[in-house]
Nucleic acid binder design. Sequence first.
DNA 1: CTGTTAGCGCCTTCAA
DNA 2: TTGAAGGCGCTAACAG
Lengths: 340, 340
Amino acid sequence: MRRVTIKDIAKIAGVSYATVSRALSGSPEISEETRIRIVEICRREGYRANTLARSLICNKTNVIGLIIPEVTNPYYAEIAFGIERSARERGYNVMLCNSGYEDAHVDELFDFLVGHQVDGIILANSRNEACDWASRYLRTIPTVLLGDAVTGGTPEADRLGTVSIDNRAGGRMGTEYLQRLGHTEILYAGVRPNSITHQLRAQGYRDAMEHAGLCAKIAENPGGSSSIEHGYELGKQLFAQTRDYTAIFAATDTLALGLMQAAEECGVSIPGELSLLGFDNISYSALPRITLSTIDQRKALLADTAVRILLDTIAQPEQQQYHKCLVPPTLIERHSCRAR
Amino acid sequence: MRRVTIKDIAKIAGVSYATVSRALSGSPEISEETRIRIVEICRREGYRANTLARSLICNKTNVIGLIIPEVTNPYYAEIAFGIERSARERGYNVMLCNSGYEDAHVDELFDFLVGHQVDGIILANSRNEACDWASRYLRTIPTVLLGDAVTGGTPEADRLGTVSIDNRAGGRMGTEYLQRLGHTEILYAGVRPNSITHQLRAQGYRDAMEHAGLCAKIAENPGGSSSIEHGYELGKQLFAQTRDYTAIFAATDTLALGLMQAAEECGVSIPGELSLLGFDNISYSALPRITLSTIDQRKALLADTAVRILLDTIAQPEQQQYHKCLVPPTLIERHSCRAR
DNA sequence: CTGTTAGCGCCTTCAA
DNA sequence: TTGAAGGCGCTAACAG
C-alpha cells in the first residue's frame, strides 16, 4: 500500500517535481494550463502531499498539542472541542492527549508532543502543580496553561501564559445570587483546601458574605477529588446533622450532583427545603431531573482565548507576552434554587 | 526557539551523529560507556528526536487517526478514550478529529490524516453512510469502521473491517428483561426508520415480542436525530394520549432522557406508572436522579477490538481480513424499570 | 565499536 | 515558465 508521492505525479505529468510542487502550493509562477492538468492528475491518483516532509522543511507543523486529564470528563470534553474548533478556524490542527491524573504522564506527553514538532502546547488542568509542569518546558516550546495561575512559584512560572475563569468573581456572583433569593444562611461546601481554584471560589464566597454582613460557613471536602462520589459522602454527613443553613453553594457541579443524591436519599427536597447551586456548568447539570443552577465557566471562550494567546506566542516567541487572562463567569439559573 | 537536533548533540559529544542515533535507539553495536555519556548529554540539552524525520525514513508514524462526530457527545468521548488507551498500550498514538455530522468533513479529515501519514484510521460513526465513507479510502489506507456494517453496499464495503455492538441482540435482551419484569405491553419508541442501527434494535425487539407471543408496538421518532429534545417532543406526544403499554423501550439513552422529562411534566411517574429502558449506557444514565436502566454498549471492548483489528490490518495489509465483529451487549439494571 | 554516506518526500533558491 | 540541486533531521546500510 505504497502511497503515491510527488515523483509519481511528476512522472505521469512529464514534468519535474518542482513543477508539481508549484502547481499545488498556489505559486503564481506557473501557467494556468499546466496547473489544471497537474491538479487533475493528483486528484485522479489520490495524491496527498506528505505533511511530514513539508513540516520538516518549513520547520512548522501547524499542529498544536492539547493535554487534558480525560476526555470522558465532560468539562474537558467541552474544552477540547472548543480548542479544536478555534484552532481549526485559524489553520491549526490539534493533537489531543489524555494525561490521566498523574504528574509523570504529563511530562511524557510534553516529550511526545515536542518530538512530534507541534508548534505549541495547551495544558488544560486545574491542579496547582499544572503551572510548574507547564513552565518546565517554557524554554523549549510555547505553552499556555488553561487553569489557575499560581503566583509566587518559580520565576519561570510567572512568564507562563495563562487563561482561566475568574473563580473568585464566580464565588462572589453565586453567593450574591443566593442572597438575592433571600438566603442569609449559606453553606459553602466541598472545598479542597490545597486547591487554588477552590481557594479562589471560597474567597469570593467569603467576600460576598462579609460584604452582606453575613456569617461564612464552610464545609471542606475530605475526599481527594471533586467527584460525584465524594459529594455524596459529604452530603450523607451533612444531612445526618441538623442544618443551620437554607442554601448550599457547592464548589463544583459534580460535588453538587453527589449532594443532590444524598439529599434525595435523606429526604431533603431540593429546592423545596434546600437550595443548591453548583459551579462549572458541565453538561450533566442541564439534564432533565437535574437542572442544577450553576456558575458557567464559558468553556468556548476560555478555549478560544487560550488558542489565541498560544498562537500569538508562536508568532512572536521573543516577545514573551505576560499574559494572565481572566474570563468573567456567568450565572445559569435552572431549578435547584428557590427564593425563601 | 530553535530546537536542538541530533547534530548539536553529536558536536557536543564529539561523535558522529550516527553514534547518537545508535545511543538512543537501543542499538547493541555501541559501548555502554559512550551510550551513557550521550544519553546524559541529550537529557541535559533537552533533546528529543524529531519524530517527523524518523517517520519519513521508516515510512511509519505509529499514529492512527480517529474520526468521531463530536467529543462532547458522551458516547464518543468514551469511545475515544478507549481507543486511545488501547492504542497506547500497543505503542500507537491517536490523532483525534471531530467531523461534526456532515459528510464533507469526514472526507476532508481522511485527506488530512492520510497527509499526516497515519498508519491507519478508525471511523466511529453510526450513520449508515459511514460505511461508504470509510470504504472509499480502503485502497489508500487501512481503515476500520466502528459502527454498523451495511451489507449489500459496494463490493468495497464488504471488505471493510467493522466492529459494532450486536444491536439486534441488545434489542432482544432489553425486551426480554422487560418481559421478565412482567410487562406484556411494551412500546418500542424512537426508531429512526432510515437508520440501520435502529432497524436492528427494533428487529431484536420484534423477535422477542414475537417469541413471547406478544404484540409489537413501535413509535417512530419524527425528529432527525436521537437527541434529548426529540425524545422530549416524542414524549409530549405520547403522554398526551392514553397509554396501552406499561413499559417503554427507548431506542437510545438520549431519547429516554427526553422521554423522562416529558413524563415528569405530564405527571406520569417513572418507574411507578411506567417503566423506561434505554440503550447505549452513556454516562448521563448513571447520574443521580436519572439512574436509567439500559443496554450497555461496552465501549471499552468495542474500542479495543477496533484497535486490534486495525493494527492487524496494518501489519498485514494484503491479507484483507474479512472482519465483521459483533460485540455482545450487556444489561445494566438501575431504577427506571419496575416489576408489575 | 564508530564514522561516512545515501536517501525518506518535499520546498526553495538559482539557472536556464 | 520550468528544471536541477541542495537540504530539513534522521536512520540504515556499508566501511573502517
